[in-house]
Design a protein around this nucleic acid. Sequence first.
DNA 1: TATAGCGGTATACAATAGTATACCGGTATC
DNA 2: GATACCGGTATACTATTGTATACCGCTATA
Lengths: 128, 128
Amino acid sequence: MAAATLKNIQKCPTSYVLAIQDTLNAFQGKWKMPIIGTLLFGKKRFKEIEREIPKITPRMLSQELKDLEMNGIISRTVYATSPVTVEYELTKSGKQLSKVVEAMLEWGLQHRRANMLELLPILQSKTA
Amino acid sequence: MAAATLKNIQKCPTSYVLAIQDTLNAFQGKWKMPIIGTLLFGKKRFKEIEREIPKITPRMLSQELKDLEMNGIISRTVYATSPVTVEYELTKSGKQLSKVVEAMLEWGLQHRRANMLELLPILQSKTA
DNA sequence: TATAGCGGTATACAATAGTATACCGGTATC
DNA sequence: GATACCGGTATACTATTGTATACCGCTATA
């Protein structure tokens, strides 16, 4: 079987497109990346996440956590303490998202370098 | 200098976060991925892109092309034919986005496989 | 008994994103 | 002269997202 790479997209365009859409979906909205980001450093409780992400409201956090759970990216565990303790953790699949984030990081850094090099002469001619 | 990887994010958290945000931004909205996707196969004219992306309106296409151009992801070239011919093409940096898309594709495919394996026993017990 | 923390939910609203539809000037074709 | 293609823009609207604010039952602590 051919490797699943963009060059082979003609072989099964629909499932490739769906796969990419799934990934985009995992990061969709203002808060998914911050949430995934904090969970990449380990399991956390609701209020912990809330404290680590400035300005997020409990409504949004609750909503996005549900969404991520439904999509199999995080798991929610309730411990029968009293009152209950709830822990959120990336699933195996969720942890793999770090590869995508890594690729995003690399692109973002190189893109900023490239744009900087393009802007430099312009900035210099303005200040000269 | 340390490699720019997520494990080193403590070293310059702000610029790492900005870099990731830039990448997310490149794909933000309903139409950016389809547009980038078609341009990964080569330069195209406005109406060509419009025809290749079902249901996109010229308003959205125009808006998103401007946005991508401003962010240094595509370039717009006007040829002095009459009437004018306009060509859109990924910049060098834009072409590098294929690496990110590739990572998204891989994650999406493995995630679907993983979820399928999880759902299978459930589906089987329902039909049994 | 009052206060604070936990893990959220409810309601109402504001802002952003996307759609529908029609139209523009220029040119080549029938 | 009418129609169609090019590369878009204008206006008005709808739908989706996100925010603000207040509140819930429960429990531990002062």
